[in-house]
């Protein structure tokens, strides 16, 4: 077969036309433009600081990519973050657990919250949109109920290393994010689990008929989503030195925007971790760069929305031209 000779050219064209590549170009252009507009943008300290601010959204966007690839959605991540933050504060201050143990309880709470979503979605067959919309309200309500509108502060100094400290000159949480990115990338690209996610997203029935444990896999990814929201909560609390029940409100929108901007199809079956990474980096840099050039908050949202539409538009147009070839 002339397979190899054709595919070199094809592959090149395919990778140039891929959504990730287009996004990457947009990212580079954004960097150049923003650098021209303000000299405070393209500095190491600013960029590292932006990484710090981005981490909470980024950590949750990784499992969200898995969930959306399977054709699902998790709207409850923001509320889960809020709930975990409160659980952290309350178990440490009011219950009096050692902080390390409180962190573990907060992470477990996140995992449990995600497991609840997954259990109802797989066993009771509640559509993910409905289930996580319900727990979006439920978990936030729980957080508010437990906190009784009090905030928790005064954590020990050592705890702030996570959210404010540095390791080897790089913000601590960026190291955590780096590890998480690698793990989520490897699992999706290299393992049977990742392959199963794509198969489920394209055709759940066929995946089931192939002997793939569809329900168990869904349970795992929703649990992972909750767990990562818990991890984000701990980092968030450490960064802002306080715990409040409204933490993470609206987080789900930023997360889903990053994932979709990264090229993951809301219909399932398509998406990459690389895309998601470019997605959340681009959103954070646009937000920051525009703020630095004096653009007000509302206009920032308009720009981000426009970039989202633009990136999807370009990909769709290229896709259409390719299928015509």
């Amino acid at each position: 077969m002339t397979d190899a000779t054709i595919s070199t050219g094809q592959r090149l064209r395919r990778s140039l036309g891929s959504h990730e590549a287009i996004l990457f170009v947009i990212l580079v252009i954004a960097l150049i433009v923003l650098d021209q507009l303000t000299d405070r943008f393209f500095t190491t300290s600013n960029l590292l600081n932006q990484g710090r601010l981005m981490t909470e959204v980024a950590l949750v966007a990784l499992p969200m990519t898995y969930i959306i690839i399977t054709g699902g959605i998790d709207l409850s991540v923001g509320s889960t973050l809020g709930l975990c933050a409160i659980v952290l504060g309350v178990t440490w201050q009011n219950v009096g657990l050692p902080l390390e143990l409180a962190v573990v309880v907060a992470l477990a709470t996140g995992a449990l919250a995600g497991f609840m979503n997954g259990w109802f979605i797989t066993r009771v067959r509640v559509p993910p949109l409905i289930m996580t919309l319900a727990t979006l309200a439920l978990y936030r309500g729980l957080a508010e109920g437990i906190s009784e509108a009090r905030s928790v502060r005064g954590y020990p100094e050592g705890f702030y290393i996570l959210g404010q400290g540095e390791v080897l000159g790089v913000p601590t949480q960026l190291w955590i994010l780096l590890v998480a990115m690698i793990v989520f990338w490897v699992v999706l690209e290299k393992t049977t689990f990742g392959r199963a996610l794509y198969a489920i997203g394209h055709n759940e029935t066929a995946a089931r008929f192939s002997g793939i444990p569809v329900d168990r896999i869904k349970l795992i990814i929703y649990t992972a989503s909750g767990l990562m929201a818990g991890l984000s909560a701990v980092i968030f609390v450490s960064r802002v030195t306080t715990t409040r029940s409204d933490m993470g409100t609206g987080l789900e929108l930023d997360v889903i925007a990053a994932v979709v901007l990264g090229g993951t199809s809301i219909f399932g079956g398509v998406g990459t971790i690389t895309g998601t990474i470019i997605g959340f980096v681009l959103i954070q840099l646009l937000k920051n760069g525009l703020a630095l050039t004096g653009v007000k908050g509302d206009a920032t949202i308009i720009v981000i929305g426009s970039v989202l539409i633009l990136s999807i538009l370009i990909t769709t147009l290229l896709e259409r031209r390719r299928s015509r070839d």
Partner: peptide, 16 residues
């Protein structure tokens, strides 16, 4: 519906 994941390659279907 039940036998194949049609948007995927022969490769990926054969090994599923």
């Amino acid at each position: 519906l039940q036998g194949l994941v049609r948007p995927m390659k022969i490769l990926e279907n054969a090994s599923l």
